[in-house]
Write a protein that binds this DNA or RNA. Structure first.
Lengths: 291, 291
DNA sequence: ACTAATGATCGGTATTACCGATTGATCGGA
DNA sequence: TCCGATCAATCGGTAATACCGATCATTAGT
């Protein structure tokens, strides 16, 4: 049994005339006759009652017709869902992102879902390491992070934009009004920083070590939003990329001088792997947004 | 797109291993690979994500899988319903019968539905002419009647049993206790007969004419059951086949002598037409019942 | 009785499903 | 780090079959 035969059968059952059905299907009458016969042989049951030059559906044919139609319909629906996917009318986009890029991500999500409201967007926040692991097993479509993945055999990265690390303080904080701040001054500020393991934190620790300074870290958190909320109380400052604080009007970013603190935000894909349409489109929107 | 390809795709999606799937499907790995590729080409969309020696479903593949499964399921269900039909687990049996055979019909229906409770039986009572018309356009599966259809090019008949016409009287009626009655004696009885057009009535009229007798016909009815109920009042007698009165204990049948009044009950099919299984089985049950 | 219409059948051709062998790549273990 | 095992893709050849045109048999309508 093949869909081709079902198609021939259904059309024949509708027209109850093999010759017309054959023309309608752009095949010869003999082919149609043979294919119907083949289907009947396989089912070991007559589907049509040939009486004279007329054909009628047998009881079996009538019963079978429903299922044949449905089978064709389902196959067609499958084809259609693929077309919808091409047009981004369905599907789920799974994004992995580090907290530092949540601001950028949020605005892109808003724009994306406006254009493609039927695509579900699932965001997975986590550390770069965790996210790359998930990317490896295709649990997510791509990763937005500041980390450049080392293994270029498995991953494929593209730099989105540069974002300098800077001091982030609430407007009420004494340092908020400063034009700039030297890296060594960080020692005199109460800091709330991302927990160890966070890429930015590890990067910072490296910087601190190299500059032989040891700032006061009162609080460390594994949630950037909570961190920023703490900063908004005015009790602490933090150090993050400028992009991290975008959208929060009551926070000020103060450039840190005395050392190069540029971080490269990048998008990372699984190398040589199929990229779903929604992912490609979304990444293009991100690039446009930052470019 | 063919069911074969969908079958290959589904199994491959389940095992996520082309080699195993190919073995499972009893085809070569190369064939499987080609067929999957062909399906992907038609959909213009990758269904599998080939990464290294692994295959994963793409988002499109995942979406398509549901429909592919359903399409296969429907085709299979169609096949199953045909099998059920062969085993008489579904379907409708449409029987045309003249009233005279209702008693026989009833008992066979009881037996049939006991064996095949899932087959619906629809009985169409009417005159032989009406029923044969319906048989011609396949509205019913066969006709049970006393009439032998003249057109043997269209119809195909088989005699089920002989049933003599006899006088039917209520136990309280004076004639009920007679052992036999001569055809000429009918003139002295008040008769209730089937309406003109009914086969038995037309046959009787012919007999009356040939014997030059004119019995008193007080009542004529186009409903045999009503006719028998009238007879049960004791006011009238009627003339029907013995089979017609079977099952009614308060009626007596009195053989009519002096003329041959044998009627042949027959089953009539549409010639050279497909006979549904239920119809064949039912007719065999009738033959067994009368044999 | 004749004619047009219809489905089945037959022989031949083009397509294609299928296979085995091979290649290229990857993975896991020694 | 190398080697063998594993896996999917590809190629060339073969067998199966979908398809066609021609023809035949039957039938419905004139």
């Amino acid at each position: 049994m093949e869909l081709r035969q079902l198609k021939y059968f259904v059309r024949s059952a509708e027209l109850l005339n093999f010759t017309e059905a054959a023309n309608d299907l752009f095949i010869s009458q003999s082919t149609l006759s043979q294919q119907i016969k083949q289907l009947e042989d396989e089912l070991d049951m007559l589907l049509f009652d040939r009486v004279g030059k007329r054909v009628r559906l047998t009881e079996a044919g009538n019963l079978f017709l429903t299922y044949a139609r449905q089978s064709l319909q389902d196959a067609n629906d499958g084809k259609q869902i693929i077309e919808d996917l091409k047009g981004l009318k369905v599907g789920t986009l799974k994004i992995g992102a580090t907290y530092g890029l949540s601001a950028l991500l949020n605005s892109t999500i808003v724009a994306f879902t406006k254009l493609y409201p039927q695509v579900r967007v699932a965001v997975d926040f986590g550390t770069s390491e965790d996210l790359l692991e998930k990317l490896k097993i295709a649990e997510i479509d791509f990763v937005l992070s500041f980390l450049q993945p080392p293994d270029t055999n498995v991953f494929e990265s593209e730099i989105l934009f540069d974002s300098k690390l800077s001091l982030i303080a609430h407007t009420s904080h004494p340092f908020a009004s400063k034009k700039k701040i030297d890296v060594k001054e960080l020692q005199h500020i109460n800091l709330a920083l991302p927990a160890k393991g966070f890429n930015t934190r590890d990067f910072l620790e490296d910087v601190f070590a190299k500059n032989k300074i040891s700032p006061t870290v009162n609080v460390e958190l594994n949630d950037i939003n909570m961190l920023l909320q703490l900063v908004e109380t005015g009790n602490w400052c933090t150090v993050l990329t400028i992009a991290s604080a975008s959208g929060r009007t009551n926070l000020r970013t103060v450039p840190i001088t005395g050392i190069e603190l540029t971080r490269e935000a990048s998008i990372t894909w699984l190398k040589d792997s199929y990229r779903k349409k929604a992912a490609t489109v979304f990444s293009e929107m991100i690039k446009k947004q930052v470019g």
